[in-house]
Design a protein around this nucleic acid. Sequence first.
DNA 1: CTGAAAGCGCTAACAT
DNA 2: ATGTTAGCGCTTTCAG
Lengths: 342, 342
Amino acid sequence: MKKKLAIKDIAAALSVSEASVSIVLNGKARQNGISVKLEDKIMSFVKKVGYQPNRLAVGLRTGKSKTIGMIVEDISDPFFSSIARVVEQHIYQYGYRLIYGSSENSTEIANDLMQTFKNYQVDGYILAPAPGLEDGVEDLIKAGAPVILFDRTLPDLPCSTVVVDNFRGSESATMHLIENKFRNIAFVTLSSRQDQMTERVNGYLAALKAHDLPAVIKDIEYREAKEKTVQSIKNLLKGKHDIDALFFSTNYLALSGLEAIKEMDLVVGQDIGVVVFDDNNNFALFTPAITAVAQPIREIGLQVSKILLDQLQEDHMIGSQNILLKTKLVVRDSSAPLRRHS
Amino acid sequence: MKKKLAIKDIAAALSVSEASVSIVLNGKARQNGISVKLEDKIMSFVKKVGYQPNRLAVGLRTGKSKTIGMIVEDISDPFFSSIARVVEQHIYQYGYRLIYGSSENSTEIANDLMQTFKNYQVDGYILAPAPGLEDGVEDLIKAGAPVILFDRTLPDLPCSTVVVDNFRGSESATMHLIENKFRNIAFVTLSSRQDQMTERVNGYLAALKAHDLPAVIKDIEYREAKEKTVQSIKNLLKGKHDIDALFFSTNYLALSGLEAIKEMDLVVGQDIGVVVFDDNNNFALFTPAITAVAQPIREIGLQVSKILLDQLQEDHMIGSQNILLKTKLVVRDSSAPLRRHS
DNA sequence: CTGAAAGCGCTAACAT
DNA sequence: ATGTTAGCGCTTTCAG
């Protein structure tokens, strides 16, 4: 077993003090008046033997772990994993690593994760906050920790946020359906209303109201079995509302919805229109291709990283930034005016 | 700013020694002869003030960071993020946290990640190894670190692995196409042949050979622009081979292929058959639904976690385990015998 | 310009 | 049954 070498080993090997090695390693040779000669000697030796400092010891000593904690709802959801990917790439160059957890939208798991991150002395937090995380986040902010909320916010907290304009995104998608002559548009969403979902509902309602059209909102339990969701949507479709279009508030809800439509032998584009909030790599390949409200994933990840890095650099608290990003309605075939079979 | 309390604070508050607190905290009261009374006193106080040990200090002292390092190819790929999710959930209950990185299949990034993990003193490694990681992994194994390879292996290393039977999965999918009367089946794969891809190619070739059918292999550059891939596949289809079925070796290659097919106004099921290695949530909803070789994602994650946890418990090296999991051919409409337009 | 020494928060061997 | 102490590997005064 290769023994791991420590600063004292390299100091001993070169007959210099540990302190000099540490100073050189941290690029503070200049300000501490270390000779260029010694610096070179140390650096080349370090490189030769491939020494790397123990991050745990550095962290313990400096109080900086160079680690960022990220809480997503579910890392296997492409929306979150894609953002995680962008953040990872971006902060990596600055020497930060990502440690993450999936909250499943549970207050308990999320708080537990927060506690864990604290114990790991993470330097910053990137959170898609589960409900009930207000207190935890408030404590962090009071403690001066960099915290960025994304995807959804927590009301009344002086905290940086990066979110999309859910209201307008939803409103414009609904208007688009209305323009294409849909008149009975149902909105399929989650029963647990977090703020991003509330905004999506409100956008939908606003558009309908402006045109004096009836609203039908179908609430689905978070994480209920897929078959159950499919059944609920079938019931909705069979119901008295004579629905001609379905607007899904999330990507995975749409997957269940499309299945329900298929099982009922309805045809998207002929019998019913479909729009989905949150785009997906595959939607362009569906038949018909699915119209979606696309979120600027890359931009979200970039902004989150940028603000975090900013806050990490600042010694004194800087005002929090609140970024609102535009969504983009990607019109495909599923929302075209119906061509009904005779 | 709430000051973080340390063991000495709670020892002082209770007028006991730090050692007693530490012992109790680690559940070693019994074996160290601490009175139940003192134990209760300490525990209830700790709970009351919400004390949690600093993981960095614990890690430095014990040499165990309670952190697992995971390298995937790309965390935004659902295959990898789904496995990460399963692993995360499973090891979480045992007090381990996951820290991960995406290698993009680059030797350099992967090695860098490995180095980082080492510096963080991770207790174990879960790797979908990029090419060129042999030496790094060998060093780890020599050092006695728990290492599990998944999705692909590294030849000749005495290391635990969890992979699927790529050969048989590929072979049976090809046979299925042959049974359905396809005669000119092209295999679209990546030019960089890692072992899992080699096996998939071989399975395809074996099936064709058994039926004396011609093979056509189309290599695509890893991570080339999607448009370029689409164009390559269009060229393949326009070529002289008179191809009647496409077998894609990965999920995302299929997405490009389907786009190519669409752009050429060909119809899957009428003009061409399609099968994909690695299933996808959405394939059932495509029109026609796409036949795929499904990998047991959950099982992969579970096995990886189980073996890792095993190795983490063992003090002395235990023999490495090599798990080969079966794939499952999910037959849908895209591979049905062609019903050609007249 | 360089080295000695303290200490981050914790655990474990050793005393009492 | 409980307390004392050394030290994990590093950084950072401060004295030479």
